[in-house]
């Protein structure tokens, strides 16, 4: 396969050059410029010395972590159950389908469902539970974000689960392992690659959510995305916006490095 390698490399390398390295170079370039276009490090200084940005980074991390955990917690069992269904491919596609409807519309639907006179409160009312504020709470923000991201977690996990050779599982039972042991010793480790893909597809994009923080969170939850949007659009300070982008990229590289080490250790 080595000889074929260079052939495959061409389209992908072109893509890398034009759509990854060129834009990233632009972003790094912008992050080194102040609003007058002079070369400077002040953006980074501002970022690391401002309590605002550090707070934003912290809260972004916290919420991204929560969202990723929730999707994993609900997504993994779902992916697992799906693999045991008869028409499993069909069901999987039905999981993906909701993502084809506009995010904005789904958020509007949640506004209706979670509202003080909305579906959830009316349902609770049937049991005599008084209507409560659901919108603009941390719960509703995490819930809706996790809802939006859930299919992106289920899909890779499902794929890795499907590939597990069922003879391995039978072998494990034959050797006297119970269900829990089989799960922890065989299924979980073998599906780990899917879990990792899912986390990568969710965690870091969740750091820069901004639409939902406003729509569902009522700006009680603020993430780095809010600041980036503001710098790129409202204040037109692309330098600062790009700086936050660069910080995000560095964080990603660190996270990737860490997961690799762990892999080597075990």
């Amino acid at each position: 396969m080595q000889k074929m390698r260079s052939l495959f490399a061409v389209p992908y390398a072109l893509w890398l050059m034009f759509f990854v390295f060129a834009p990233i170079a632009l972003i790094v370039g912008y992050s080194l410029m102040d609003i007058n276009g002079h070369l400077t490090l002040t953006n980074y200084q501002d970022f690391f010395s401002s309590s605002n940005y550090l707070l934003l980074t912290l809260s972004s991390f916290w919420y991204a972590l929560l969202i990723t955990l929730c999707t994993l917690l609900f997504g993994y069992p779902m992916a697992y159950c799906l693999t045991h269904l008869k028409h499993r491919d069909l069901w999987l596609m039905l999981v993906i389908l909701p993502t084809w409807i506009s995010l904005l519309l789904k958020a509007y639907a949640f506004i209706g469902i979670f509202g003080i006179h909305g579906g959830v409160n009316q349902f609770l009312g049937l049991f005599g539970i008084p209507a409560r504020q659901i919108l603009f709470t941390n719960f509703s923000f995490v819930f809706v974000s996790a809802y939006i991201e859930l299919p992106f977690m289920i899909l890779p996990i499902y794929n890795s689960l499907v590939e597990i050779d069922s003879s391995l599982i039978f072998a494990s039972y034959d050797l006297g392992a119970n269900k829990w042991q089989t799960f922890t010793k065989i299924i979980w480790p073998l599906s780990l690659s899917g879990v990792k893909s899912g986390i990568q597809a969710i965690f870091i994009p969740s750091l820069s959510l901004f639409m939902l923080t406003r729509l569902i969170g009522g700006n009680h939850v603020i993430t780095l995305g809010t600041a980036i949007e503001e710098h790129f659009l409202v204040t037109q300070n692309w330098g600062m916006g790009a700086t936050i982008g660069v910080v995000l990229i560095i964080i990603m590289l660190l996270v990737m490095g860490l997961t690799r080490q762990r892999k080597g250790g075990s």
Binding site: F21, I204, L224, G241
Partner: peptide, 22 residues
């Protein structure tokens, strides 16, 4: 691998703006 993931982690607004310049 890292280069592959760069776009995945860059916020949309940043990708959009840099593509526009490009």
């Amino acid at each position: 691998l890292a280069a592959n993931n760069l776009l995945l982690v860059s916020p949309d607004v940043i990708i959009g703006a840099s593509f526009l310049i490009l």
